[in-house]
Design a protein around this nucleic acid. Structure first.
Lengths: 110, 110
DNA sequence: GTCTTATGCATAATTCACTTAGGTATAAGC
DNA sequence: GCTTATACCTAAGTGAATTATGCATAAGAC
């Protein structure tokens, strides 16, 4: 696991990007997806994930669709057009930030 | 300027690393140094910098030396042995975090 | 010669994303 | 039946930042 401090400010970007790459997903699925993509280095907590999803929805970046699986509720999230635009922005902003940081810290990436 | 959210959790690492690279520095100098290294993309605020320096000193990572320049006080900071070890750790942790993130976000760096 | 900018330190109140800690409920494995 | 996995949610607390101050000396513009 990484120092969780570093994750701050990147959670929204992560959520938006995996939704962009995979299309429709539900919360629990996003958690597992990120854990796999990160080789268990990133473990999204529910207390962080669900409020983030609700916020992104309230801001118009995500839309939802609720499905019943037997008697259990499952809430699928997907990007709106605005969400796709925002994802592009945030990812490129993140890449730019990394370039800047690697300059300040004098480290090589790639 | 970058979205300031991304900076969270990286300030200590930045301070430690520039001190490692440049040796003795004072607060105001660190601010300017980081601004130059980042092409004005990172602007450390005093309200964040000074408390951070004090904290790192209290934790034994930095030591200080106060010098009078005319009638003005200047407080130089430099790394302790522990500070150097911690810097190595944090920088490599940051690089590792970036690798993980580039995997999750499916972006190419370098 | 005074007015603005640069130098240089510092702290206090507030914000906000996250952690921690709880709560509810169904389904599957053993 | 008991534990684990699935699946949603919220509330209190933390802590690193922002924002807003405050103080003081030195330099440059004009």
């Amino acid at each position: 696991m990484h120092s969780p401090e570093l994750l701050k400010g990147t959670l929204q970007t992560i959520v938006l990007k995996v939704l962009k790459d995979r299309g429709r997903m539900y919360g629990y699925e996003i958690t597992n997806c990120v854990r796999e993509l990160s080789d268990s280095r990133l473990q999204l907590t529910e207390g962080a994930l669900y409020p983030t999803l609700h916020k992104l929805e309230a801001e118009g970046f995500l839309k939802t669709e609720t499905v019943m699986i037997g008697k259990r509720v499952r809430k699928y999230y997907s990007l709106t057009a605005e969400g796709r635009a925002s994802t592009r922005e945030r990812v490129s902003e993140f890449v730019d930030f990394i370039r800047t940081m690697s300059n300040v810290l004098q480290v090589e990436l790639g």
